[in-house]
Amino acid sequence: MWQVLKSVLAAFFGVQKDQQRKKDFEEGRPTAFIIVGLLMALVLVVGIFLLATTAAE
């Protein structure tokens, strides 16, 4: 699970180690990446929303 989260965050940042990428393709399940990806997108949106509302006060 930690491995999936790390890869999703790397994808958000846009930089990934080649060796990690290979490992993901050999061992990982696509559904895990999709679910964690959607969750993290939600976290990002809510995070920006909270940051913007606190800054606006």
Binding site: F13, G14, V15, Q16, K17, D18
Partner: peptide, 11 residues
């Protein structure tokens, strides 16, 4: 082919 450190820095 790749250099993760450089890529992280220029991002």
């Amino acid at each position: 082919h790749e250099n993760t450190t450089v890529e992280v820095v220029w991002t």
